[in-house]
Design a protein around this nucleic acid. Structure first.
Lengths: 200, 200
DNA sequence: GTCTTTCTGCAATGACCGTTCCAGTATATT
DNA sequence: AATATACTGGAACGGTCATTGCAGAAAGAC
């Protein structure tokens, strides 16, 4: 029917993703996105419609390729007793590596949360959902590690369940803080991950 | 010697502060700062040197007038047993008020942490110091509430001290997360504050 | 081979950015 | 009153922004 695209869309998204990750949506310029993706302006606008469209694609890719794979072991049934510890160790490795994207820039989504783009409903919902996903995963991981609810069922009213809820919220918050602190205080960020590990 | 300034510098800083608070450093435009402060460009540049100079003044003002007053009761000696609960209740009130600056925009400094400006050494240090101040305050507040170290002294090696450290880190992280989530999920932010309260 | 459709390269668009320059104004000191 | 100094208003600076328009290139369908 027509001319075929000369580039792989997903490769372009990955390249653009790292630009948004580093600079945030607002400060990522189109010329910079051109450079990173190797594409011309027309190709970007033809494929994604707008800078915002490209960013949305990057957010989806970030969730699918960066966040979810790490979280998956905590969302399976049953959850392995060591899954949470493994997740946190992996996170620590990533944040501790000063060369990696997470180590240098924290979390693409949490950075977006504090930026003007975070006011956009579509983005706000994505970030909120991610944070909730993280909290739920922490809860499952904690429960498994502590040998509670091996078959998953723990009454919501029980004291153990309340404690689990609080600790899960705390764990998720420690991870969130680690992301938030990565840019400004690398060591403090790692301390947050360690504190989360110690909560298991 | 010379003509006198026609405006109050601190009033201008407060006005500019709310602009930076809402939009972040990068997205706050000079025309908008002019509008908010009621000043002309020349006056701004004469008084503060640059947009960045004005921002620095706003950060100082934010620390001195917004952060420190709330944290003070937790930094006195001795700390009141109810000081942490009062702090968290106050924070809950501020974050819960959808009309207030914290309720709408979270924390000026934590927002800056995830933005490009967070890469500037001077800003990164300020944010890191604030976060450490918060953690230390949480520790003192927790200790007081739990009746530990009435005279403040608790050996670093004791198990109680380790627990206190972890809980303080968790508390500070819950507050940090509350700030980070305010823009994207108001209810979740309040839940974080509640979780911190429950840790006392 | 022709047609149709999509993709690509380049240039231009109007708008806004932070900063600077300059002429004019007002005041505290002498 | 004269002077030196600091503040103010307004216009202009060069630069960058996201987006669009258009001409040409490429490839599947017929």
């Amino acid at each position: 029917m027509a001319r075929t695209r000369e580039f792989a869309t997903d490769e372009a998204v990955v390249a653009a993703r790292s630009v948004f990750w580093e600079h945030g949506y607002e400060q990522a310029s189109v010329p910079e996105l051109e450079r990173a993706t190797g594409l011309g302006r027309s190709s970007i606008y033809q494929a994604f419609g707008s800078k915002r469209g490209l960013f949305d694609a990057c957010v989806e890719s970030y969730l699918a390729e960066v966040i979810r794979p790490r979280l998956r072991p905590l969302e399976q049934d049953p959850v392995d007793a060591g899954a949470l510890a493994e997740y946190l160790d992996g996170l620590r490795g990533a944040l501790g590596d000063a060369g990696s994207a997470p180590g240098r820039h924290g979390c693409l989504l949490m950075n977006a949360a504090g930026a003007p783009i975070g006011r956009e409903d579509a983005i706000a919902e994505r970030v909120a959902a991610y944070r909730e996903e993280l909290r739920a995963a922490m809860r499952r991981g904690l429960a498994a590690a502590r040998g509670l609810g091996g078959s998953g069922r723990l009454g919501d009213g029980e004291p153990d369940a309340r404690l689990l809820d609080r600790d899960a919220e705390a764990c998720a918050s420690l991870v969130t803080s680690a992301f938030a602190l990565t840019r400004v205080d690398h060591a403090a960020a790692l301390r947050c991950v360690d504190a989360a590990r110690a909560m298991i």
